[in-house]
Design a protein around this nucleic acid. Structure first.
Lengths: 116, 116
DNA sequence: GAACTATCCGTAGACCGTCTACGTATGAAC
DNA sequence: GTTCATACGTAGACGGTCTACGGATAGTTC
């Protein structure tokens, strides 16, 4: 029996989780657990958001006004706090996406200088 | 006189500096100050590595065996500690480059789902 | 030789986001 | 009534980057 081939998780870089959460909520309101699962599944299970990262992040984002929340009932019939983007949150997402693109660009330039 | 238009620096994400240092040393041995400047100039001044980040990083990398160092004299005729990649450091660079590529890929998938 | 700038090394401590490791409660299945 | 999945959360460790210092030496200007 070969070793259980788990898919080698990637650790998140500090500062990327907020962007991923905001992005996930662009698909529509969602509760914490759902957000975590969405990120997992959309990354083919390479990313896994720990609850110890996820919930503090959600509270942080709400406190900053990027998100607002309300209690509801999940599809599995559980009490759940649904988050959605505020207008400020949408703007923030644009900023973070921009910064990410820039950073990927610049690091790419260093790691892999343009052959011209 | 318009406001001095500085180029809006990008903050590094935690975990990317080590890779950039290792990469810079692929160009050849270099001292700390030089490494910082190389990263700055290769990023069109978008990245700036503070000495409070740079030197701890160099010591960390050396301690882990990715780098080795020796004292020498800089081009500007100053005492300088020259760092170079070890074999382990080259291997590490490959790993980090890989991880970075994977992460950019996966995050790209979430931020910008493939139009197929 | 005094003053100043650029070069080069470094440390201390704040800061902050992610992680591991817990704990709690409810609903569904058996 | 036990077990599992769902859903919320916190406490504290951890680690890398940041700001803000300090110190030594070389070169330049006066």
């Amino acid at each position: 029996m070969p070793k259980n081939t788990e898919p080698e998780r990637l650790e998140l870089l500090q500062g990327t989780l907020d962007m991923l959460i905001l992005r996930t909520l662009q698909w529509g309101p969602q509760h914490g657990h759902g957000i975590g699962q969405a990120i997992s599944s959309q990354s083919d299970d390479l990313l896994k958001v720990e609850t110890g990262s996820l919930y503090p992040a959600l509270h942080r984002l709400e406190k900053r006004g990027w998100l607002k929340s309300e209690w509801g009932i999940s599809e599995a019939n559980h009490k759940a706090k649904y988050y959605q983007l505020t207008a400020a949150g949408k703007a923030q997402l644009l900023r973070e996406r921009d910064r990410w693109t820039q950073l990927v660009d610049v690091i790419g330039k260093i790691m892999n200088p343009a052959a011209e």
